[in-house]
Amino acid sequence: YKHIEHCCGAFIASHYKNPVEVGVGDNPDAAQCVHEAGCRIRATDIRACRLPDWLPFARDDIFSPDLSCYTGADVMYALRPAEEMIPPLIALARTLDCDLVVYHLGFESYRDGGAIVDCGVPLHFYYRRGQNPSKSVD
């Protein structure tokens, strides 16, 4: 495993039961950590991806999401998403009332960066279940 993906996957697997990786691309390494820990994992991306058979996948555009791709998720996570993806991810997390966890490339962040948890790499929480919407990062 790559270090970043392993740290993120291990954190997600130890804190959640029904995660969705958004923008998986052709890199299922974090999802594999989650899967190997026994969690039900799903993934989405705007384009078709070459992924292993064990990983349920749906093509979805986060800017106009199909809510059925995320039903029941307790967390959505994204590794190195483009900055413009953060606002629609926050909006979707609010709609679903699930946590949103993001690993940014380098020292990137969105607005104030949300709450940061160090799991070997810095993870940004931009929304937490049950969070007062007036307190979340828009």
Rank of each mutant, 00 (worst) to 15 (best):
R59A: 13
G106Y: 03
C69F: 04
Q32N: 10
G120R: 00
H124C: 12
R47S: 11
C98M: 08
L55E: 07
D29I: 10
S68R: 12
Y16P: 14
E5S: 15
G23M: 08
Y126W: 10
H104Q: 04
V102P: 02
H15C: 11
D74G: 00
I86T: 05
G120I: 03
Y127C: 09
H6N: 10
F63W: 09
F125G: 07
V121M: 03
R50V: 15
C33W: 01
A10Q: 13
H104K: 02
V75E: 04
D74E: 07
R129P: 01
L100Q: 01
F125Q: 07
R80G: 06
Y126N: 08
E5W: 02
E84W: 10
A115R: 15
A43N: 02
R128L: 13
A78C: 15
R40V: 12
P87V: 10
C69D: 07
G25V: 05
P28T: 02
W54L: 09
S14I: 02
R111D: 13
C39H: 00
I116Q: 12
L105S: 11
N27P: 01
E36Q: 13
V24Y: 05
M76W: 01
V24T: 10
V117W: 03
D61E: 11
C7W: 00
I41P: 05
S136P: 01
L51I: 01
C49M: 14
V22D: 03
D61C: 11
I62M: 08
Y126H: 09
D61R: 10
D138T: 12
F57H: 01
A37M: 08
C98S: 13
I41F: 06
L105F: 10
G130N: 11
F11M: 00
L100D: 07
I41S: 06
F107S: 14
F125K: 07
A58Q: 12
P19T: 06
C33N: 02
D66A: 12
N132W: 02
H6P: 01
E21V: 00
D26I: 05
F63T: 13
R40H: 12
E108Q: 13
A73Q: 08
A48S: 13
G23N: 08
D112V: 06
C7G: 06
E21F: 02
C39K: 13
V34D: 01
H104L: 06
L89Y: 05
I116G: 03
V101S: 07
D60F: 03
L89T: 04
P56Y: 02
C8W: 04
F107G: 11
L51H: 00
L100M: 04
N27G: 04
G25H: 00
R40G: 06
V20R: 10
H15R: 15
A78G: 04
G9R: 06
S68N: 11
C7M: 15
K17E: 14
Y127R: 08
L55H: 06
R50D: 14
S64W: 04
L96S: 00
P122D: 07
S134E: 14
H124S: 14
K2I: 08
L51S: 05
D61Y: 10
Y16C: 12
N27K: 11
V22E: 02
K135L: 13
R40Y: 05
L96R: 03
P133F: 06
M76T: 04
F11V: 02
D74M: 01
V75L: 03
